[in-house]
Design a protein around this nucleic acid. Structure first.
Lengths: 136, 136
DNA sequence: CGGGATCCTACTCGATACTG
DNA sequence: CAGTATCGAGTAGGATCCCG
């Protein structure tokens, strides 16, 4: 590596940082949001973090989710290898869902995000209320 | 608090956990996704983590974002108190954006998520390819 | 019970053109 | 430069009905 490459530019944000987020984090964040950035994915993953649940149990634990969206989101998560789907051939049928090892690795960052939300959402709502009061 | 409340139920997931995610984390995750779960918010926040940027700089650093979406998302973030907007009364006008202290607290969990994405997206894409190959 | 199929609505987002 | 305004396509997501 030439020594010129080691010199840190004094201006931190003027012209060299076009690759700052785009190649690595930028694409990663976008891909991530494309997969678990929807309305129910993180909720399902968080709900499954304590163990296996069957379809109707999941639906009960996540109020407001429709059968359709639960089915769709679970299918996407299974397709991405984050959730495993096990069908027990019985009558009535029983289908159980649980996190895969890969899915389990998402728990920590997801809970970090949830913790942030719990801690800072009051401030956000206050800021929003103040903003709306000021702007009419 | 009565002593019966301290007894941990032995079955981890059968009947008592209706409040497991819904009251705290569940609502938090939903509110969070409502605010920064869109296409550009996390990208903007990550881009601003290194310092102040003006509108056109932000647009250059986030390829693919339209003027409209950049304006809209910045307005939402400003409304929520995550981003501050400073107008310098000059000609041509200069408007600078930076993270507020509250916004800065989001950097760590957001980067944790981005790091997860960088680490696990290849596995996800592989799982998806395998799933699609098996299912046609 | 665990979905699949269908219809329908609302909203997101992008493209384009215009403004101060 | 930093927006605003308007239009239109695409899609996420809810409601409903049906099936194995």
């Amino acid at each position: 590596m030439p020594d010129t490459a080691e010199i840190e530019p004094p201006t931190p944000l003027t012209g060299y940082e076009d690759r700052c987020l785009q190649t690595d984090e930028g694409r990663a964040i976008r891909d991530l949001m494309d997969r678990v950035g929807d309305k129910w994915s993180l909720l399902i993953i968080s709900t499954l973090r304590a163990g296996t649940l069957r379809f109707s149990e999941l639906q009960r634990h996540i109020p407001g989710v429709s059968q359709r969206m639960l089915t769709l989101t679970l299918k996407h998560l299974a397709r991405d290898g984050l959730v495993s789907r096990t069908v027990h051939p019985e009558v009535p049928p029983r289908v159980e869902y649980s996190l895969t090892p890969t899915g389990r690795t998402l728990i920590d960052p997801a809970e970090a995000l949830a913790a942030w939300a719990v801690a800072h959402l009051p401030a956000i709502k206050a800021a929003r209320a103040e903003f709306d009061a000021a702007a009419g």
